[in-house]
């Protein structure tokens, strides 16, 4: 089943075409890597799919809802975690979870159970009263990911979720992603780390607002005759006309 479809999605800001007629589809339970250099249009495309920004033309659907016509329904069926850390430092762990559960419309009577479930899954029941600000970054990110899924969304959008953490913490984080994907949640993830691209089921590489490659990491490596995704990426990104913006 296709949970995300993009058909000729385009976003222009004046004369500048940030996203240029991109088309792709994502299956349920898939881990879809959305790669691209800075300024390639990743964030803009992601904002369109999250219902935050209206496409100039083209059609996008997420969880069966049209992103430009039903953004509210789209928002209710997705989870989102941004590259910037998105929990409140001055709230306790359980307060953050409860707040986001409330925001995402989890019924009041389910929230305590929901909170316990998140903490148990992270094996973090002892830390429920800790202030989020006092946690190490790796923990914060795992917690932010769990919070983004507190309402059992069908799709989770992760915008460079592992920025700034050490490789061990990144691996732990990807274990959480795999767990989520196994339970049928679709993961749409942007990343800078090419080793993480290898973990994805399929990746797309965005260059100057266009999708230049879209396949499994293995097929891409064969096609470009490269030993790693890193080299595939550089082979494509070298053609970019746009600098960082």
């Amino acid at each position: 089943m296709k949970v995300i479809t993009a058909h000729e999605l385009t976003k222009r800001f004046g004369n500048f075409t940030a996203v240029d007629a991109i088309s792709f589809q994502v299956e349920q339970g898939e881990i879809f890597g959305f790669l691209g250099a800075n300024g390639a249009g990743k964030t803009t495309a992601m904002r369109i799919l999250c219902g935050l920004s209206r496409p100039t033309s083209g059609v996008g659907t997420v969880a069966g809802f049209d992103v430009s016509r039903q953004p509210e329904k789209v928002k209710a069926s997705i989870g989102y975690m941004s590259q910037k850390f998105a929990l409140y430092d001055d709230l306790k762990v359980w307060e953050n979870i409860r707040l986001y559960a409330g925001i995402y419309g989890v019924p009041a009577r389910d929230i305590p159970g929901c909170t316990d479930e998140v903490l148990r899954r992270l094996d973090f029941t002892d830390g429920r009263n800790a202030m989020v600000g006092s946690l190490p970054l790796g923990w914060k990110q795992k917690l932010a990911f769990s919070v983004a899924m507190v309402h059992n969304p069908r799709i989770v959008f992760l915008d460079e979720p592992t920025g700034g953490v050490d490789p061990a913490a990144r691996r732990q984080f990807w274990e959480l992603i795999y767990q989520a994907a196994e339970s049928g949640i679709t993961i749409f993830v942007t990343t800078h780390y090419m080793d993480e691209a290898e973990y994805c089921d399929r990746v797309s590489i965005l260059v100057d607002g266009r999708i230049q490659a879209l396949d499994t990491p293995r097929a891409l490596k064969q096609q470009y005759d490269a030993p790693t995704m890193n080299e595939v990426f550089f082979a494509l990104a070298r053609r970019a006309q746009r600098g960082e913006s």
Partner: peptide, 13 residues
């Protein structure tokens, strides 16, 4: 500044 606004905007609120 902290990025929480973006998360809130993506939510149904």
């Amino acid at each position: 500044e902290t990025g929480t606004m973006e998360v809130l905007l993506v939510s149904p609120v």
